[in-house]
Amino acid sequence: MAQAERPLSPHLQVYRPQLTSVLSILHRVAGVALIGGAILLVWWLVGIAIGPAYYAKVKGVISSTVGQVVLFGFVAAFFYHLCNGVRHLFWDAGKLLEIGAAERAGWLVVLASAALTLVTWYFGMGG
């Protein structure tokens, strides 16, 4: 079927970014980014299963500068997606759907995920 060049109704670009829309986009971005985290996590598990020499190699890569940047991104994406996912579950249950409640829960998600990321980093992963 030939694609007709039909006019599109105005969407994303005509709207001022709002907390709700930005968080919604970030939820997807974080979710897709978690593929990288999943690969890293599985590689770590495989490393433990294979043996001490391979495990040391995995740890070496993760504790390198690039590894630490990737790991921090993974931790941040994980906690953001988890906290905002809980917000989505409340919506699915029909709660927090009013604009004010959705925005307050949004700010709570931002604060909670930032706090969880920093606490996790402080208590173990960094360095």
Binding site: L41, I48, G51, P52, Y55, A56, F78, L82, G85, V86, H88, L89, D92, T120, F123, G124, M125
Partner: peptide
């Protein structure tokens, strides 16, 4: 949704586990 609900406690549990093992040697892991 079913997997999301399961992943909230499991994800938090495993995150704690990984933090504890962050600097562990192979035997501990």
């Amino acid at each position: 949704r079913v997997t999301a609900i399961a992943l909230v406690p499991l994800g938090l549990w495993f995150a704690v586990k990984i933090v504890r093992l962050a600097h562990a040697d192979w035997e501990t892991a």
